[in-house]
């Protein structure tokens, strides 16, 4: 992970040193981005910007970004949790009733092709009446997060062999106990990759949701605000992006923390969730 960061830093600075400041243009199309200080500030510029105050005499940028991260983390966590629960329930329902799987699965897939931007104003309208405004962003995060969980979990729940299912039947175990004792544990190797995807989707949902619902206080809003200053203060917007990346890492870390104790003795299956 440290090595990965180092490589990323090297690539950034390396391209900055070697790349054309005006970007590489081929047949009128810019195939490589500009490498000037305005588009790609030096890493140390970004680092220094983190330490400087946001505005003259204000709080330092790192503190503002961190606070925005925490705000968005709360939204992401709520959306991630809600999305996971919804995904699990949908998967269980689809496993239980063949007809639900046939009827629902196409719509589950369809739900993800509806552009989020079209949906956001509708959901934002619930803020203040049905729920506090921040919760509408969580709804958007949950809307993106439930999908990989539902699809991955369905496959996991269907993964036990006929022998295992027959064994449970021979023990006179009904659907619920078969789910708890056999299907759910068998589905865990499918669930965790799905949770990773869902976590990333929840972060994207929260950031984009904040922007499209105009929610203040989070990292999404900060990215928009700082990008307006990009011409005069190009490093600033990158500090906010670092914050968003940190958020993603935190969520991925949380999933790993959950996975570690549960998956220690398990074979890992190859899963293509989509």
């Amino acid at each position: 992970m440290i090595a990965g960061l180092a490589v990323a830093a090297l690539l950034w600075e390396g391209y900055k040193a070697a790349g054309d400041p005006e970007g590489t243009v081929l047949f009128g199309v810019r195939v490589l981005p500009r490498a000037d200080d305005l588009s790609m500030p030096h890493l140390w510029t970004i680092g220094r910007r983190l330490a400087d105050p946001e505005m003259t005499g204000g709080r330092p940028v790192w503190l503002v970004v961190l606070q925005a991260c925490l705000f968005t983390l709360g939204i992401t966590a709520a959306g991630f949790a809600a999305g996971t629960v919804i995904g699990l329930v949908l998967a269980a329902a689809m496993q239980r009733f063949r007809i639900v799987e046939r009827g629902l699965l196409p719509y589950v897939v369809l739900s993800q092709t509806v552009p989020l931007v079209a949906l956001a104003p509708l959901i934002a309208g619930w803020g203040g009446t049905l729920m506090p405004p921040w919760a509408t962003v969580s709804v958007i995060a949950a809307y993106l997060a439930f999908f990989p969980v539902a699809v991955g979990m369905l496959r996991g729940l269907q993964s036990p062999s006929a022998g295992g299912v027959e064994l449970m039947r021979s023990y006179a175990a009904g659907w619920w106990r078969t789910l708890v004792k056999l299907r759910f544990p068998a589905a865990l190797p499918y669930l965790f990759p799905a949770l990773r995807l869902a976590g990333a989707a929840a972060v994207v949902g929260a950031v984009v949701g904040e922007i499209s619902t105009g929610t203040r206080g989070g990292i999404g809003r900060l990215i928009i605000e700082y990008s307006r200053e990009a011409t005069s203060d190009p490093a600033k917007v990158y500090t906010a992006m670092l914050g968003a990346a940190l958020l993603g890492l935190l969520v991925a870390g949380a999933v790993s923390l959950l996975e570690l104790p549960l998956m220690r003795h398990r074979r890992h299956v190859e899963v293509a969730t989509l």
Partner: peptide, 17 residues
């Protein structure tokens, strides 16, 4: 339902977890 029998198949079918 009263579990009057025990059963074993060709595949051991143990729960790996």
């Amino acid at each position: 339902r009263e579990q009057e029998y025990g059963i074993a198949f060709q595949q051991a079918g143990l729960f790996e977890w």
